[in-house]
Amino acid sequence: MKRIKLLATMLWAAITASAQEATPDMADALRANGKIYVVVTVIGIIFTGIVTYLVYIDRKISKLEK
């Protein structure tokens, strides 16, 4: 009986300890309302600009090939 009691106490301790473990810091708030969407849009604009320029060079070379 003593042994079972001890085991139960230890189990309980282990469970509560794991429940209290802090979750790692993630930028959850940043993604929600930290204006991360502004950055995402900026990246989108820059990338679109680069791709547009690549298309431009691509077409220029096509003309040269003719």
């Binding site: 979750t23 790692p24 993630m26 993604r31 991360i36 995402v40 990246i43 989108g44 990338f47 679109t48």
Partner: peptide, 15 residues
């Protein structure tokens, strides 16, 4: 890539 560059920053990842 446009999807990757934008959604890649917004999607949730394993903490």
């Amino acid at each position: 890539l446009l999807f990757v560059l934008t959604y890649g920053l917004i999607c949730s990842v394993p903490p």
